[in-house]
Lab assay of single mutants.
Amino acid sequence: RNLTILSLPEDVLFHILKWLSVEDILAVRAVHSQLKDLVDNHASVWACASFQE
C-alpha cells in the first residue's frame, strides 16, 4: 500500500500547514487538487501562516 501525505488525517495536515510560510502554503496548494481544496476551504490554514519572510 502506498502512503502519501494525502493519507494523513486532515487535522495532521493542518498541523503541518500551520508551520509553513505563505510561499510554502501556495506551493503545497499547487501540488494536488485535494491540497488546494484543503487550503482554499479552511481559513485556519491562513490564520497561522507566517506573512513575514
Score class of each variant (00 low, 15 high):
R1G: 10
R1V: 07
R1L: 09
R1A: 00
R1F: 04
R1K: 14
N2A: 06
N2E: 08
N2W: 01
N2R: 12
N2M: 10
N2Q: 09
N2S: 12
N2L: 04
L3Q: 01
L3D: 05
L3W: 05
T4Q: 07
T4K: 05
T4L: 01
T4A: 02
T4V: 00
T4C: 06
T4W: 04
I5P: 06
I5L: 14
I5D: 01
I5C: 04
I5T: 03
L6Q: 07
L6Y: 07
L6A: 01
L6P: 04
L6G: 01
L6R: 01
S7E: 10
S7F: 06
S7C: 09
S7M: 10
S7W: 04
S7D: 14
L8W: 01
L8Q: 00
L8S: 05
L8P: 04
L8V: 00
L8N: 03
L8C: 00
L8A: 06
P9S: 04
P9F: 05
P9D: 06
P9Y: 00
P9T: 04
P9Q: 03
P9I: 01
P9G: 08
P9M: 00
P9W: 01
E10Q: 12
E10G: 05
E10M: 06
D11G: 12
D11N: 14
D11Y: 06
D11T: 13
D11C: 11
D11Q: 13
V12Y: 01
V12R: 00
V12L: 09
V12M: 00
V12D: 02
V12G: 03
L13G: 04
L13V: 11
L13S: 04
L13R: 05
L13N: 07
L13A: 06
L13C: 00
F14R: 14
F14W: 15
F14H: 09
F14Y: 11
F14T: 14
F14P: 00
F14M: 15
H15T: 07
H15G: 12
H15C: 12
H15I: 10
H15Y: 08
H15L: 10
H15F: 06
I16S: 04
I16G: 03
I16R: 06
I16W: 02
I16V: 10
I16L: 04
L17V: 11
L17K: 00
L17W: 03
L17I: 15
L17S: 01
L17H: 04
K18H: 12
K18L: 06
K18T: 10
K18G: 12
K18S: 10
K18V: 07
K18E: 11
K18D: 07
W19A: 08
W19M: 15
W19F: 15
W19Y: 15
W19E: 15
L20W: 03
L20Q: 01
L20N: 03
L20H: 02
L20A: 04
S21M: 02
S21W: 02
S21H: 09
S21E: 12
S21V: 05
S21F: 03
S21I: 08
S21R: 11
V22H: 12
V22Y: 14
V22M: 11
V22K: 12
V22D: 08
V22S: 07
V22W: 12
V22F: 11
V22C: 09
V22G: 06
E23D: 14
E23Q: 09
E23A: 13
E23N: 09
E23Y: 05
D24K: 01
D24C: 03
D24M: 05
D24P: 04
D24A: 05
D24V: 02
I25G: 00
I25F: 03
I25L: 09
I25C: 06
I25A: 05
I25M: 09
I25N: 00
I25D: 01
I25V: 09
I25W: 08
L26H: 08
L26Y: 08
L26V: 07
L26E: 06
L26C: 10
A27W: 05
A27P: 07
A27L: 05
A27D: 07
A27K: 11
A27M: 10
A27T: 14
A27Y: 01
A27S: 13
A27H: 10
A27N: 13
V28D: 01
V28C: 11
V28W: 03
V28A: 02
V28G: 03
R29A: 01
R29N: 00
R29Q: 02
R29K: 02
A30L: 15
A30V: 12
A30F: 05
A30H: 08
A30E: 13
A30P: 01
A30C: 14
A30D: 02
A30S: 14
A30T: 13
V31T: 15
V31L: 02
V31F: 03
V31Q: 06
V31R: 03
H32V: 06
H32I: 01
H32R: 02
H32N: 15
H32C: 15
H32W: 00
H32L: 03
H32E: 04
S33T: 10
S33N: 04
S33F: 02
S33K: 09
S33M: 03
S33Q: 04
S33A: 04
Q34K: 15
Q34R: 14
Q34T: 14
Q34D: 07
Q34L: 08
L35Q: 01
L35W: 05
L35V: 02
L35H: 01
L35R: 01
L35N: 03
L35C: 04
L35F: 11
K36S: 02
K36P: 05
K36D: 01
K36E: 02
K36W: 05
K36L: 05
D37G: 13
D37F: 10
D37Y: 08
D37R: 15
D37E: 12
L38C: 15
L38K: 09
L38V: 15
L38W: 10
L38N: 01
V39P: 00
V39K: 03
V39R: 02
V39S: 07
V39W: 04
V39Q: 08
D40C: 00
D40A: 00
D40T: 07
D40K: 02
D40P: 02
D40R: 03
N41F: 04
N41A: 13
N41T: 12
H42G: 07
H42E: 02
H42L: 06
H42P: 06
A43L: 05
A43Q: 12
A43E: 09
A43S: 13
A43T: 07
S44K: 12
S44Y: 07
S44A: 12
S44P: 11
S44I: 01
S44R: 09
S44W: 06
S44F: 09
V45T: 15
V45F: 13
V45W: 14
V45Y: 15
V45A: 15
W46E: 13
A47T: 07
A47Y: 07
A47V: 06
A47S: 12
A47F: 15
A47M: 12
C48Q: 10
C48G: 15
C48R: 09
C48S: 15
C48V: 08
C48W: 09
C48K: 09
C48L: 14
C48H: 09
A49P: 15
A49F: 04
A49Y: 09
A49N: 12
S50P: 12
S50A: 14
S50W: 07
S50N: 08
F51A: 11
F51V: 13
F51L: 14
F51K: 10
F51I: 12
F51Q: 11
F51D: 03
Q52K: 14
Q52L: 13
Q52P: 08
Q52R: 13
Q52A: 14
Q52I: 12
Q52S: 11
Q52F: 10
Q52E: 08
Q52M: 10
E53D: 11
E53P: 08
E53Q: 13
E53M: 08
E53C: 06
E53A: 11
